[in-house]
Amino acid sequence: MLARRKFDLPGMGWKNTFAEMERMRREIDLLTDTLFSGPQSRPISSGLFPALNITEDKDNYYIRAELPGMKADEIDLQVKARNLGISGERKIHSEGENVKYHRREREAGKFARVIELPGEIDADKINAHMVNGVLSLTIPKSEAAKPKQITIKTV
């Protein structure tokens, strides 16, 4: 019997079989967690900087990014059709020669990212502002992309 033979093999005893089953169970749990995590779903990282949150309502798309320490004029925004480009460089200024660092977790560097919006936008009316290190963009949807209410006529 195959099963019998398997258990006879050294290193393939009961203990290891259970460990293997435990490992599989954990993997399945992980998979189901990512697939059905309910309303509190974890954010999906694209791996691109900056991380963006996009929301919409009837009239606008809203894009937000956390860019602490950056000034409005250090960020370059460009729109082409439905694509929005965000680029810039985060600089961390030198604190002098005689300082001794204990921790350095904040990072500096260049970034560039292009994101495509799901619908047509009105590029001339985009509003961008920077408050407390958070970039907020309000992007009006073009008239064609806005949902239209259709009235049903009664004959």
């Binding site: 954010p43 991380a51 963006l52 996009i54 309502d57 009837k58 809203y62």
Partner: peptide, 10 residues
Amino acid sequence: DESDVLVEFE
């Protein structure tokens, strides 16, 4: 009344 389109950070 905003609904999520893309969520990359919390």
